[in-house]
Amino acid sequence: MTKVLSPRSAAKRAAILDAAQVCFCEQGYAATSMDMVAASAGVSKATIYAHFASKDDLFGAIICRRCDDQAEGLGGLVLAAKGDGRTALAAIARALMDLFLAPEVMALYRVVVAESPRHPDLARIYYEQGPWRGKQRVAEVLAALDRQGQLVVPDPWQATDLFVNMLRGEVFHRALLGLEPAERPTAETTIAESVRVMLAAYGPHP
Protein backbone atom coordinates (compact mmCIF):
# COMPACT_ATOMS: atom_id res chain seq x y z
CA MET A 1 0.00 0.00 0.00
CA THR A 2 1.41 3.39 -1.02
CA LYS A 3 1.99 5.74 1.89
CA VAL A 4 0.09 9.02 1.59
CA LEU A 5 2.39 11.95 2.31
CA SER A 6 1.40 15.34 3.63
CA PRO A 7 1.93 18.22 1.17
CA ARG A 8 5.00 19.35 3.13
CA SER A 9 6.49 15.86 3.23
CA ALA A 10 5.74 15.30 -0.45
CA ALA A 11 7.46 18.58 -1.31
CA LYS A 12 10.56 17.56 0.65
CA ARG A 13 10.62 14.17 -1.03
CA ALA A 14 10.38 15.81 -4.46
CA ALA A 15 13.18 18.23 -3.56
CA ILE A 16 15.38 15.33 -2.48
CA LEU A 17 14.71 13.46 -5.72
CA ASP A 18 15.41 16.57 -7.81
CA ALA A 19 18.68 17.25 -6.01
CA ALA A 20 19.75 13.61 -6.07
CA GLN A 21 19.11 13.27 -9.79
CA VAL A 22 21.34 16.26 -10.50
CA CYS A 23 24.06 14.89 -8.21
CA PHE A 24 23.95 11.39 -9.70
CA CYS A 25 23.95 12.66 -13.28
CA GLU A 26 26.73 15.21 -12.74
CA GLN A 27 28.95 13.31 -10.29
CA GLY A 28 28.11 9.68 -11.03
CA TYR A 29 26.63 7.15 -8.65
CA ALA A 30 29.79 6.22 -6.76
CA ALA A 31 30.90 9.82 -6.16
CA THR A 32 27.50 10.96 -4.90
CA SER A 33 27.05 10.83 -1.14
CA MET A 34 23.96 11.30 0.97
CA ASP A 35 25.66 14.32 2.55
CA MET A 36 26.03 15.84 -0.92
CA VAL A 37 22.36 15.23 -1.71
CA ALA A 38 21.26 16.67 1.65
CA ALA A 39 23.28 19.84 1.08
CA SER A 40 21.94 20.23 -2.45
CA ALA A 41 18.33 19.63 -1.37
CA GLY A 42 18.61 21.89 1.68
CA VAL A 43 17.52 19.16 4.09
CA SER A 44 19.20 17.09 6.78
CA LYS A 45 20.58 13.64 6.09
CA ALA A 46 18.08 12.32 8.63
CA THR A 47 15.27 13.70 6.45
CA ILE A 48 16.62 11.81 3.46
CA TYR A 49 16.73 8.57 5.43
CA ALA A 50 13.18 9.18 6.60
CA HIS A 51 12.15 8.85 2.95
CA PHE A 52 14.76 6.50 1.53
CA ALA A 53 16.43 3.58 3.29
CA SER A 54 19.69 3.76 1.33
CA LYS A 55 21.45 5.34 -1.62
CA ASP A 56 20.32 2.40 -3.76
CA ASP A 57 16.73 3.03 -2.66
CA LEU A 58 17.07 6.72 -3.53
CA PHE A 59 18.53 5.97 -6.95
CA GLY A 60 15.77 3.43 -7.61
CA ALA A 61 13.14 6.03 -6.72
CA ILE A 62 14.69 8.47 -9.21
CA ILE A 63 14.56 5.82 -11.92
CA CYS A 64 10.91 5.02 -11.18
CA ARG A 65 9.90 8.69 -11.18
CA ARG A 66 11.72 9.39 -14.43
CA CYS A 67 10.16 6.34 -16.04
CA ASP A 68 6.69 7.30 -14.80
CA ASP A 69 7.17 10.69 -16.45
CA GLN A 70 8.24 8.99 -19.68
CA ALA A 71 5.24 6.65 -19.62
CA GLU A 72 2.92 9.62 -19.08
CA GLY A 73 4.54 11.43 -21.98
CA LEU A 74 3.99 8.44 -24.24
CA GLY A 75 0.37 8.18 -23.18
CA GLY A 76 -0.62 10.42 -26.08
CA LEU A 77 0.55 7.73 -28.47
CA VAL A 78 -2.75 5.94 -27.93
CA LEU A 79 -4.46 8.88 -29.61
CA ALA A 80 -2.20 8.43 -32.62
CA ALA A 81 -3.94 5.13 -33.34
CA LYS A 82 -7.00 7.10 -34.48
CA GLY A 83 -5.19 8.50 -37.51
CA ASP A 84 -4.08 6.87 -40.75
CA GLY A 85 -1.02 4.64 -40.66
CA ARG A 86 1.46 7.23 -41.92
CA THR A 87 0.23 9.95 -39.56
CA ALA A 88 0.24 7.59 -36.59
CA LEU A 89 3.74 6.27 -37.30
CA ALA A 90 5.07 9.80 -37.73
CA ALA A 91 3.53 10.85 -34.40
CA ILE A 92 5.04 7.83 -32.65
CA ALA A 93 8.45 8.43 -34.21
CA ARG A 94 8.47 12.10 -33.23
CA ALA A 95 7.45 11.35 -29.63
CA LEU A 96 10.10 8.66 -29.29
CA MET A 97 12.87 10.74 -30.87
CA ASP A 98 12.09 13.67 -28.57
CA LEU A 99 12.20 11.30 -25.61
CA PHE A 100 15.46 9.62 -26.65
CA LEU A 101 17.24 12.95 -27.14
CA ALA A 102 15.95 14.68 -23.98
CA PRO A 103 19.07 15.72 -21.98
CA GLU A 104 17.70 14.52 -18.63
CA VAL A 105 16.80 11.13 -20.12
CA MET A 106 20.25 10.72 -21.63
CA ALA A 107 21.99 11.77 -18.42
CA LEU A 108 20.15 9.17 -16.35
CA TYR A 109 20.67 6.52 -19.03
CA ARG A 110 24.44 7.09 -18.91
CA VAL A 111 24.48 6.65 -15.14
CA VAL A 112 22.42 3.45 -15.30
CA VAL A 113 24.68 1.95 -17.97
CA ALA A 114 27.80 2.87 -15.99
CA GLU A 115 26.42 1.34 -12.78
CA SER A 116 24.72 -1.73 -14.25
CA PRO A 117 27.66 -4.14 -13.65
CA ARG A 118 27.70 -3.23 -9.93
CA HIS A 119 23.95 -2.69 -9.51
CA PRO A 120 22.10 -5.05 -11.88
CA ASP A 121 18.87 -4.66 -9.91
CA LEU A 122 18.80 -0.94 -10.67
CA ALA A 123 19.44 -1.66 -14.35
CA ARG A 124 16.55 -4.14 -14.31
CA ILE A 125 14.24 -1.59 -12.68
CA TYR A 126 15.23 1.00 -15.27
CA TYR A 127 14.61 -1.38 -18.17
CA GLU A 128 11.29 -2.71 -16.90
CA GLN A 129 9.93 0.69 -15.88
CA GLY A 130 11.34 2.64 -18.84
CA PRO A 131 12.19 1.03 -22.20
CA TRP A 132 9.96 -2.02 -21.70
CA ARG A 133 6.91 0.05 -20.70
CA GLY A 134 7.49 2.43 -23.59
CA LYS A 135 7.76 -0.40 -26.11
CA GLN A 136 4.64 -1.98 -24.67
CA ARG A 137 2.75 1.27 -25.24
CA VAL A 138 3.96 1.50 -28.85
CA ALA A 139 3.05 -2.15 -29.46
CA GLU A 140 -0.47 -1.44 -28.22
CA VAL A 141 -0.81 1.39 -30.74
CA LEU A 142 0.49 -0.76 -33.60
CA ALA A 143 -1.95 -3.52 -32.63
CA ALA A 144 -4.79 -0.98 -32.68
CA LEU A 145 -3.74 0.22 -36.14
CA ASP A 146 -3.71 -3.41 -37.29
CA ARG A 147 -7.26 -3.94 -36.01
CA GLN A 148 -8.39 -0.79 -37.83
CA GLY A 149 -6.84 -1.97 -41.08
CA GLN A 150 -4.48 1.00 -41.22
CA LEU A 151 -1.46 -1.31 -40.96
CA VAL A 152 -0.87 -5.06 -41.19
CA VAL A 153 1.17 -6.00 -38.12
CA PRO A 154 1.20 -9.74 -37.36
CA ASP A 155 3.61 -9.30 -34.44
CA PRO A 156 3.28 -5.83 -32.84
CA TRP A 157 6.09 -6.48 -30.34
CA GLN A 158 8.59 -7.43 -33.05
CA ALA A 159 7.49 -4.48 -35.19
CA THR A 160 7.95 -2.17 -32.21
CA ASP A 161 11.45 -3.49 -31.58
CA LEU A 162 12.41 -2.81 -35.20
CA PHE A 163 10.83 0.66 -35.18
CA VAL A 164 12.48 1.73 -31.93
CA ASN A 165 15.90 0.53 -33.00
CA MET A 166 15.71 2.34 -36.32
CA LEU A 167 15.11 5.54 -34.37
CA ARG A 168 17.95 4.84 -31.91
CA GLY A 169 20.59 5.04 -34.62
CA GLU A 170 23.34 7.49 -35.56
CA VAL A 171 21.63 10.60 -34.18
CA PHE A 172 20.95 8.98 -30.81
CA HIS A 173 24.40 7.45 -30.39
CA ARG A 174 26.27 10.63 -31.31
CA ALA A 175 24.19 12.56 -28.78
CA LEU A 176 24.69 9.86 -26.15
CA LEU A 177 28.46 10.09 -26.56
CA GLY A 178 28.46 13.88 -26.58
CA LEU A 179 29.64 14.10 -30.20
CA GLU A 180 28.73 16.85 -32.63
CA PRO A 181 25.70 16.01 -34.79
CA ALA A 182 26.53 14.74 -38.27
CA GLU A 183 25.19 16.50 -41.36
CA ARG A 184 23.26 13.34 -42.15
CA PRO A 185 21.34 11.60 -40.89
CA THR A 186 19.43 14.17 -38.86
CA ALA A 187 16.60 13.54 -36.43
CA GLU A 188 14.14 14.57 -39.13
CA THR A 189 15.58 12.32 -41.84
CA THR A 190 15.76 9.43 -39.38
CA ILE A 191 12.09 9.87 -38.51
CA ALA A 192 11.07 10.12 -42.17
CA GLU A 193 13.08 7.09 -43.25
CA SER A 194 11.91 4.99 -40.30
CA VAL A 195 8.29 5.77 -41.14
CA ARG A 196 8.92 4.94 -44.81
CA VAL A 197 10.45 1.56 -43.93
CA MET A 198 7.62 0.75 -41.51
CA LEU A 199 5.01 1.57 -44.16
CA ALA A 200 6.85 -0.56 -46.71
CA ALA A 201 6.89 -3.48 -44.29
CA TYR A 202 3.51 -3.09 -42.58
CA GLY A 203 1.40 -0.84 -44.79
CA PRO A 204 -1.78 -2.39 -46.20
CA HIS A 205 -1.29 -3.73 -49.71
CA PRO A 206 -4.07 -4.29 -52.26
Rank of each mutant, 00 (worst) to 15 (best):
L96W: 01
D98T: 09
A95R: 15
G76C: 06
V105A: 09
D98N: 14
L77M: 15
A61R: 15
R66W: 04
K82Q: 15
G73H: 12
K82Y: 07
M97N: 06
M106N: 08
D69Q: 15
E72T: 14
L96M: 08
R66P: 00
L99C: 05
C64V: 13
E72L: 11
G76W: 08
R94L: 04
T87Q: 14
R94D: 10
P103I: 05
A90Y: 03
L74Q: 04
Q70M: 14
G83Y: 03
D98C: 05
R65L: 02
F59M: 15
C67K: 03
A61N: 04
E72C: 02
R94F: 00
Q70C: 03
P103N: 01
G83A: 14
I63F: 09
Q70N: 09
A107P: 02
I63W: 07
R66F: 01
E104Q: 11
A102T: 05
I92M: 13
D98I: 08
A93V: 01
A88V: 09
C64W: 04
I62D: 00
L79P: 05
G73Y: 15
A95S: 12
D69N: 13
L77D: 11
A91N: 06
F59G: 05
G75E: 00
P103K: 08
I63P: 02
R66T: 12
R65S: 11
G83Q: 12
L79Y: 06
K82A: 15
F59T: 03
E104C: 03
L74H: 14
M97H: 02
G83N: 12
V105N: 14
R65N: 03
C64I: 11
R86N: 08
G75K: 03
A61I: 03
T87F: 00
F59N: 02
L99H: 15
K82W: 01
V78R: 13
T87D: 08
L96N: 05
K82S: 15
M97K: 04
A93E: 00
A80F: 02
L77T: 00
G83V: 01
K82R: 14
D68R: 11
E72H: 09
D98W: 03
A90H: 15
D98H: 11
A61H: 09
C67E: 08
G75C: 02
L89F: 05
V78G: 11
L101K: 00
